[in-house]
Design a protein around this nucleic acid. Structure first.
Length: 723
DNA sequence: CCATCCGCAGTTTTT
DNA sequence: CTGCGGATGG
């Protein structure tokens, strides 16, 4: 391969990015503009043309899927192995660093990783041990606090006394949590990042080594980096150039710590940085892009870009406002039938929604019409209860000090070891500063337990010890199979004759399968047993459902899950105020803008046709709710939308003569909508019940609590919106 | 200690 | 309407 091969088929902007000088580069890559292509070709360019050694490249992504895809595409491009390159997720690469330097970071060699479920369990255990009321200190919130502080690089000892008793309590919990992790020799996800950052920070010779070693760093989905990941990246880069690819308009993970500022301030952080915009879209029709551009234009502070596309204008969007959620689902099913009748495939269709709860009604409609479908997201393989139970046995087999696993399985399946006995073990462990396993052994030798409890505990420990012996030296899948069998888990779940029990048994069998096909790079984690490597893999790779494009299925997923994917036909359902944008985001403009970016992501998934649906009323949490069409509908120019009107409903019209579209537009014009609570200087609090006129002439009808219904001209009335 | 009933809350998700 | 956690009875 020579220079021209690498650049073949790239447009000028893509070429510019691929061949950019070896400085910091920010590629602002609009949806469908060939982002991954640029990234992989850049790597090929650096190696083939600039003569950069593959081992001095580090490419980082957020998901395993993206990392695997990048590796595969680079290999195809270079027709050589990428083994020597560091390509992986932030957590995967951080993990690799820690495995190499476990001694320097004071971890046991076979340290294990806590996933968020493990972490939550540990937090709960800590709360109980500190005798803290869970209702006042919700474990979820505590978990959020701990991860939040770690993401800021703050250890408990860095958190100063602020005099705030709530803060003091949280710090106390955080301290205990750290101690517990340390004792058990486990690290949570955030810890992987923080610990490796501290390693590089404190050990200057290691830092120098890695900064020398990596001459080029490449980041995908840069807009999704959180503070800690960004700090990690910069420290590892040193003065080496960073090639970042991202799109501020597709930042949809602010709620989990992603900082859109990183992409917006890139040129300040890297003063010599070059910014390149990829604005030509190869995915969608011009109509779809116009709609996307119009919606996202309502956001402030964008880096700004305008997507355009060549080719067939295609069909304009379609909007159907249903009477209710069932009618909406029926319409969607009809549209799918139509698509297929016109020669389309089901696998070309995606149904997107804001929250998982919405899938049910749609699924029922699809089942009713015999349309095969597949729901993405939901529980992942390695996160299922039964699988995690089995993994806990395996973890305890390799390391008896793993208290998190110990607690999980000591009475799973039930072997008559209850809260009481467990509490004695915990007390003993704390007093003696040892693991639960060790504490159990001690209590048994000094004969401190009731004979019943002692027998049960002894039985459990013997089970683990014997299992460890039996399994030692056997092939990995046999180890797993024997563990699943002898732990009693298989029999336990098989007792449940329902569909659920059946599925659990199958999952346990599948785990053995996963172990059979598990391969690992022997150079990757030196000194670890195959089992330990497998366990780390299970924690870091949640086990994605995998392809499935060969089944001709309609795909159902949340808008978040759709990021990075594309489909000829996209149906965005539940386009309603309160649902999308979600009511939780109403209070803060920043969160509302994130919802809008989510809408932008949804629209730009569509290649040929985009359909939008909403329901006037739907059952939510067992209650009937009424909503207006989403403001995002109103933000799309009306000439781009074909509004499919339902037949007039018997009874009083909900829209007082307006089409849903007109309604949505007025919502946008005034910043108010029907149902919004407002405050008036003279009339006090009330709720908007109607609205008419455009621009300066807008009038709203408000039903005031104390003064009844009044029509007010918005320009004069000075209504203050309430939350 | 273990099964069953009641009350409550209830976006989005990767590692 | 669900699923989870806590309280209750066997």
């Amino acid at each position: 391969m020579d220079v021209s091969d690498i650049l073949t088929g790239l447009n000028p902007a893509q070429c510019e990015a691929v061949t950019a000088p070896q400085n910091a580069v920010l590629v602002l890559a609009g949806a469908g503009s060939g982002k991954t292509r640029v990234l992989t070709h850049r790597i090929a360019w650096l190696i083939r043309v600039e003569g950069v050694s593959p081992c001095s490249l580090l490419a980082v992504t957020f998901t395993n899927k993206a990392a695997n895809e990048m590796r595969a595409r680079v290999e195809t491009l270079l027709s050589s192995s990428t083994r020597s390159m560091w390509i992986g997720t932030f957590h995967g690469l951080a993990h690799r660093l820690l495995r190499h330097h476990w001694q320097e970071v004071r971890l046991p060699q076979s340290f294990q990783i806590l996933d968020s479920d493990d972490q939550l369990r540990l937090v709960k255990r800590i709360l109980r041990s500190l005798e803290i009321d869970e209702s006042k200190w919700p474990p979820k919130h505590v978990q959020w606090f701990i991860n939040g502080r770690k993401e800021e690089g703050l250890r408990p000892q860095h958190l100063q006394e602020t005099g705030d008793p709530a803060q003091a309590q949280l710090v106390r919990i955080y301290t205990a949590y750290e101690a517990a992790c340390c004792k058990a020799g486990v690290v949570d996800f955030t810890e992987l990042m923080l610990r490796s950052l501290e390693l590089l920070h404190e050990k200057s010779e290691l830092r120098d080594y890695y900064q020398q070693h990596f001459r080029h760093l490449l980041v995908d989905e840069f807009q999704d980096t959180n503070t800690l990941q960004y700090a990690w990246l910069r420290l590892l880069a040193g003065s080496s150039p960073v090639f970042a690819v991202g799109d501020d308009d597709q930042s949809i993970y602010g709620w989990r710590g992603a900082r859109i500022e990183h992409i917006r301030d890139f040129q300040q952080d890297f003063p010599d940085a070059q910014m390149i915009r990829l604005e030509q879209n190869y995915r969608s029709t011009p109509y779809i892009l116009d709609a996307a551009n119009a919606v996202i234009a309502h956001n402030d502070g964008r880096l700004g870009k305008n997507l355009w596309a060549e080719g067939e204008r295609g069909e304009i969007l379609r909007f159907y406002q249903a009477y209710n959620d069932l009618d909406e689902a029926r319409y969607i099913a009809d549209q799918i039938k139509d698509w297929v009748a016109r020669g389309g495939r089901r696998s070309e269709i995606a149904i997107l929604y804001r929250s998982n709860a919405q899938s049910r009604v749609i699924e029922e409609a699809l089942i009713g019409r015999g349309i095969p479908y597949r729901v993405y997201g939901g529980q992942r393989f390695f996160e299922r209860t039964e699988v995690k139970d089995a993994l806990a046995y395996l973890r305890l087999i390799t390391r008896r000090t793993d208290d998190v696993s110990f607690e999980r399985i000591i009475n799973q399946p039930a072997r008559s070891i209850g809260e009481r006995t467990l509490q004695r073990l915990r007390d003993q462990a704390r007093e003696e500063g040892v693991s639960l396993w060790e504490a159990a052994a001690q209590l048994l030798t000094v004969n401190e337990l009731t004979s019943r409890a002692a027998g049960a505990v002894q039985g459990f420990m013997r089970l683990i010890d014997e299992l460890a012996q039996t399994v030692n030296g056997l092939p990995l899948d046999t180890q797993v199979a024997l563990t699943v069998e002898h732990s009693g888990l298989l029999a336990f779940f098989a007792r449940d004759k329902g569909e659920r029990g059946q599925a659990r048994v199958e999952n346990l069998e599948e785990l053995t399968n996963a172990a059979r096909v598990f391969h690992h790079d022997p150079e990757e984690h030196t000194g670890l047993s195959l089992l330990d490597t497998f366990l780390a893999h299970a924690a870091l790779e949640s086990g994605e459902g995998g392809g499935g494009a060969w089944d001709d299925c309609v795909q159902l997923m949340t808008l978040h899950a759709a990021k990075g994917l594309e489909f000829p036909l996209v149906i965005m359902s539940g386009m309603e105020e309160g649902l999308f944008p979600h009511r939780m985001s109403f209070d803060e403009p920043g969160r509302l803008e994130e919802e809008r970016r989510l809408c932008y992501v949804g629209i730009t998934r569509a290649k040929r046709q985009l359909m939008l649906t909403a329901a006037e009323t739907r059952r939510l949490h067992g209650q009937q709710t009424y909503s207006l069409p989403s403001r995002f509908i109103g933000e799309i120019p009306p000439e781009l939308i074909n509004e499919v009107r339902p037949k007039p409903r018997i009874g009083k019209p909900v829209w007082s003569g307006d089409t849903p579209m007109q309604y949505a537009r007025r919502t946008v014009d005034s910043g108010l909508w029907v149902g919004k609570h407002v405050r008036h200087v003279k009339f006090g609090d009330g709720i908007v019940i109607d609205q008419e006129g455009q621009g300066a002439q807008i009038r709203v009808q408000v039903n005031f609590k104390d003064h009844g219904q009044k029509w007010l001209v918005l320009a004069y009335a000075k209504l203050q919106p309430l939350v």
